[in-house]
Simulated scan of single mutants.
Amino acid sequence: MSSELFASYESEYNALAAAIRQRLDRTLPELVGAERRNALNTTERELTEVSELAEQMGMELLTLEGPERQRAAPRVRQYKAEVERLRREARKVSQGLGNYESNRRALLGDSPARDLSAEEAGLDSDHRTRLLSGNERLLRGSERLQESHRIAIETEAVGASILNDLRSQREQIVNTRDTLAQADAHIDRSQRTLRTMTRRLLTNKMITTGLIVIGASLVLLILYIKLTR
Score class of each variant (00 low, 15 high):
residue 126 D to N: 11
residue 100 Y to C: 01
residue 25 D to R: 08
residue 124 D to A: 09
residue 140 R to E: 15
residue 225 I to T: 13
residue 109 G to Y: 01
residue 43 T to H: 08
residue 158 V to Q: 12
residue 80 K to T: 14
residue 170 R to W: 06
residue 88 R to F: 11
residue 84 E to W: 05
residue 209 T to S: 15
residue 104 R to V: 04
residue 163 L to T: 14
residue 83 V to Y: 00
residue 22 Q to V: 14
residue 8 S to N: 06
residue 34 A to P: 00
residue 27 T to P: 00
residue 209 T to Y: 13
residue 10 E to A: 11
residue 10 E to D: 13
residue 197 M to C: 09
residue 13 Y to K: 05
residue 182 Q to G: 03
residue 61 L to P: 00
residue 9 Y to N: 01
residue 141 G to M: 14
residue 132 L to R: 14
residue 9 Y to C: 04
residue 130 R to A: 10
residue 173 I to Q: 06
residue 69 R to Y: 08
residue 207 I to D: 13
residue 109 G to W: 01
residue 148 S to K: 05
residue 147 E to Q: 11
residue 149 H to V: 07
residue 2 S to M: 08
residue 120 E to T: 10
residue 72 A to W: 03
residue 129 T to D: 11
residue 174 V to D: 13
residue 191 Q to H: 14
residue 168 S to F: 04
residue 39 A to V: 12
residue 74 P to G: 01
residue 215 G to Q: 01
residue 229 R to V: 10
residue 76 V to D: 00
residue 216 A to N: 06
residue 171 E to Q: 08
residue 228 T to E: 01
residue 42 T to Q: 10
residue 194 L to K: 02
residue 220 L to F: 06
residue 221 L to H: 03
residue 36 R to T: 02
residue 217 S to R: 03
residue 51 S to N: 12
residue 160 A to Y: 05
residue 6 F to A: 04
residue 136 E to Q: 00
residue 189 R to L: 15
residue 72 A to L: 06
residue 199 R to F: 07
residue 145 L to C: 06
residue 2 S to Y: 07
residue 25 D to F: 04
residue 216 A to R: 04
residue 82 E to N: 04
residue 123 L to C: 06
residue 172 Q to T: 08
residue 197 M to Q: 12
residue 32 V to D: 05
residue 78 Q to N: 11
residue 130 R to F: 09
residue 214 I to P: 11
residue 2 S to G: 05
residue 125 S to H: 08
residue 137 R to V: 05
residue 176 T to V: 00
residue 175 N to P: 07
residue 153 I to A: 07
residue 210 G to K: 08
residue 144 R to E: 09
residue 124 D to C: 06
residue 195 R to M: 13
residue 207 I to C: 08
residue 224 Y to A: 15
residue 76 V to E: 00
residue 69 R to M: 12
residue 92 K to V: 15
residue 98 G to D: 02
residue 185 A to K: 11
residue 85 R to G: 15
residue 96 G to L: 06
residue 25 D to C: 04
residue 190 S to A: 14
residue 100 Y to M: 03
residue 41 N to W: 03
residue 137 R to L: 07
residue 94 S to R: 11
residue 80 K to A: 13
residue 35 E to Q: 12
residue 124 D to R: 07
residue 18 A to Y: 13
residue 180 L to N: 12
residue 29 P to M: 05
residue 130 R to S: 11
residue 105 R to I: 14
residue 183 A to L: 06
residue 172 Q to Y: 07
residue 201 L to S: 02
residue 114 R to G: 05
residue 150 R to W: 13
residue 100 Y to Q: 04
